[in-house]
Design a protein around this nucleic acid. Structure first.
Lengths: 127, 127, 127, 127
DNA sequence: GTGGTCTAGACCACC
DNA sequence: GTGGTCTAGACCACA
């Protein structure tokens, strides 16, 4: 999985989301050192400033922290990570439910359909 | 609920989806006569050709049918409607599950979270 | 009072502080429209991006809000403003007290000295 | 507490302040013999000339005195020390009050906030 | 080498 | 005109 952007959202937000995803999904482990801003920006083919901005905002969320001269690291606080994972799930569920609602399914009906759905091969996969 | 469009998808597709939604959600009832293409296009502030195209595709799906002289009607075949409703739900569930999967939730966990989620006020829909 | 910067702190932080000061001191009133980013940046003789960054961070604090096409405004929420004013005071008191502490004054001694001090003409003044 | 310097003020001034602090705070007692300029300069990792200059100025203020043959001593005149302590406090209070004033607090309000503030753990000092 | 700041200048969407 | 994003490129502090 590489870096891909849709034209309808700011790149720095998409970078933010994708890094966030990698952290909550365990692709980036707690305490792991991230590549440098410069390297990440090359990898994602964006300007270093843009990557910098995305990471700075993740830092505000407490998902990463910076050590001045040695680089950026994923937080060791697994609490924060699982809280974020939960927040993302809540948001996904909200969107899902409001759409199901629109076509006439109640919350519990939606839950049943999810439970009985065919297994879906994950697009990317996690551990 | 009025007609709203996002700039990043063809308008005729969005029209199609929105009419489809109104049918499966029961806002347009089986057998109900639709407004004329001209009126609908005015209501949605789109070109009549665009509206025409959207409705033609819905006709292909069997959700509406045309009577030469008297206009377009929602299908009376509730089978077709509930099949469509089901198809939409399947698609929503697939998308939802693959995203939940990405951040580390299994199908049954996802179902539980849906069931235990706070009630979400529908954005529009029929309750 | 114009814009002045010390070389030992990032300019965007100083901009942030100075605007914050103008808001909590009542120089900028609740609901008042701010000058445009471009104009403010000219006034402060900084790059528009730098001013933009400072204001964006003030927005995160809830002190200003943006209306897409018409500009930025001081929040109308006087709660937020007085909360911020209080936070700044707490910080000033902390610094003051720890220094007084260092030279041997207790909290209540410090308070007494403040109360009995000669009136100080404010450097800038507020209403 | 060791010797620490900020890059934005002359070091001899910072030395002066820190020694002054140690005297008024009682860390260096009245009549106590100071270490030699050479030793103090090593301890503070500064040039002996710089330390010499700092101490000379303290001598001008009457806080230390030199006995030709035996070294430098903190003054025995507790009057001078408490006067200096008072001068420093006045200055701190002035700065504090003018800032509080800027954000809209009167002298007596400021005093109240100080009195009711949470206890602040001293950064170093004597309690 | 690391992160961080700042500038200059372009481009976009919105109205 | 407004705010917002992005890039390119320079410079700094730290170690």
């Amino acid at each position: 999985m590489s870096w891909e952007f849709s034209p309808d959202k700011p790149i720095y937000l998409q970078l933010q989301e994708q890094v966030k995803l990698r952290i909550v999904s365990g692709k980036y482990l707690p305490g792991e050192k991230l590549a440098s801003v410069r390297d990440l920006s090359i990898e994602a083919a964006v300007n270093p400033n843009t990557m910098q901005r995305a990471l700075a905002e993740l830092e505000r969320d407490g998902l990463v922290y910076t050590e001045r001269t040695s680089g950026r690291f994923v937080t060791n606080d697994t609490e924060v990570i699982s809280k974020m994972k939960n927040d993302i799930a809540i948001e996904l569920v909200d969107v899902f439910l409001s759409k199901m609602n629109e076509i006439g399914y109640s919350k519990s009906e939606a839950a049943d359909i999810v439970r009985n759905s065919k297994e879906v091969e994950s697009t990317d996969g996690n551990s």
